[in-house]
Simulated scan of single mutants.
Amino acid sequence: MRQIFMGIGILAGLAACTPAEDAQMPHVWTTLNGQAPLVIAHRGASGERPEHTLEGYTLAIEQGADVIEPDLVMTSDGVLVVRHDHYLSTTTDVADHPEFADRRRTQGDQTDWWVEDFTFEEIRTLRARQPWPQRDQSFNDQFLIPTFEEVLDLAAAHGVRTEPEVKVPGHFAAIGLDPLPELVRILRERDLDGADASTSIQCFEPEFLARLDGEVETPLLMLVFPMIELDPTADPLTPTVALADAAGFADGVGPSKSLIITPDGGDTGFVAAAHALGLAVHPWTFRDDVPVAEGVDVETELRQVYALGVDGVFADFPATALRVRSEMSGD
């Protein structure tokens, strides 16, 4: 185990004080490091701009996000570009490019355009689109698809952390586009390969993170979801990777919200169990415009998970997560 993810905020462990003094004291957070939980701009300020664009990340930074999150996929010529999916139809204007009509093909049970069939130069001719129909569509077809290195440049210029997710690395490796060597090269060239790096790498595939753990000291985040989604007979609170196993190569876990909190706001014990193993907890995903449960809005949900001691939250609308955190801090 290397170092715990760095946070921001006010140290806990405050001494006892009089009631008058207590009214002036900051909120005591129960995160691993005693600091306020990180607000991670999920795909940028993706609720307000097309996801994974420099413009969306910039808006999140302007709003005060502590971390920006790029998802990484690889082009046919080995460039790490930023998209949530390795298919392109939902988040780009690829269907409007007649020159790419013959690139559409079936892979698995989906017919689409796939990033691994495009060179970086070709990807640069595409423009980003907002995939959520209820969100602002007025910025469609304006913004480029950035590279990982461009996002790192932006983050460095503004002094914020990054938390990139490597998408389906096993698939890319199987077709001869293993993302690990290029990722390691970029991390090393930018001095982001140490335990104190201003970035941390996340992935749903434990094999990839275990390999990466052998190459760099960069903090790693194991993404997990309920095993019941793969095995209907599984306990709903069993994660896809056991916490004890994740602790062998990762510094934190990124669980689906349903693993840490019940529909009525109850504590499942996941956060405490992860903390006992020294694992930071960054749950996903908090969205202002997606119903949480009857009578529960996203602000209530954020207060509930902040109270559990999570170390960070992935939010499509980072301004909301920041505001709720500030209110709880008494700022």
Rank of each mutant, 00 (worst) to 15 (best):
R2S: 11
R2K: 14
I4T: 12
I4R: 13
I10P: 00
G13D: 00
T18E: 09
D22Q: 14
M25T: 05
P26H: 08
T31S: 06
N33D: 15
I40F: 03
I40M: 12
H42S: 04
G44W: 03
G44M: 04
G44Y: 03
S46C: 05
G47N: 06
T53D: 03
L54R: 01
E55D: 13
G56P: 07
Y57N: 04
A60H: 11
E62N: 10
Q63R: 14
G64A: 08
A65M: 06
V73C: 10
T75G: 06
S76T: 07
G78W: 09
V79R: 11
V81C: 13
V82K: 03
H84L: 11
D85I: 03
H86E: 13
L88T: 06
T91N: 04
F100W: 09
A101T: 06
Q107C: 01
G108Y: 10
Q110D: 00
W114Q: 01
V115G: 02
E116Y: 15
W132I: 14
P133S: 11
F139E: 14
D141P: 06
I145P: 01
D153W: 05
A155M: 06
A156E: 15
A156K: 11
A157G: 02
G159T: 02
G159C: 01
V166Q: 09
V168T: 12
G170W: 12
H171S: 02
F172I: 12
P179Q: 09
P181A: 10
E182F: 04
R185Y: 07
R185M: 05
E189K: 08
L192K: 10
G194H: 11
Q202M: 15
P206T: 13
E207K: 12
L209S: 12
R211E: 14
R211I: 04
L212W: 10
P219I: 10
P219Y: 05
L221D: 08
V224F: 11
F225L: 04
P226Y: 14
P226I: 13
M227W: 07
E229A: 11
T238R: 15
P239A: 09
V241T: 15
L243E: 06
A246Y: 13
A246M: 12
F249I: 13
A250D: 05
A250M: 07
D251Q: 15
G252A: 15
S256T: 07
L259T: 08
D267I: 11
V271S: 03
A274R: 07
H275C: 05
H275E: 05
A276H: 09
L279Q: 03
H282Q: 06
W284G: 00
F286Y: 15
F286H: 11
R287H: 03
R287I: 12
D297N: 15
V298T: 13
T300F: 02
T300Y: 03
T300V: 11
Y306W: 09
L308R: 07
G312H: 04
P318I: 11
T320I: 15
R323V: 04
V324R: 02
E327A: 12
G330D: 03
G330K: 08
D331E: 14
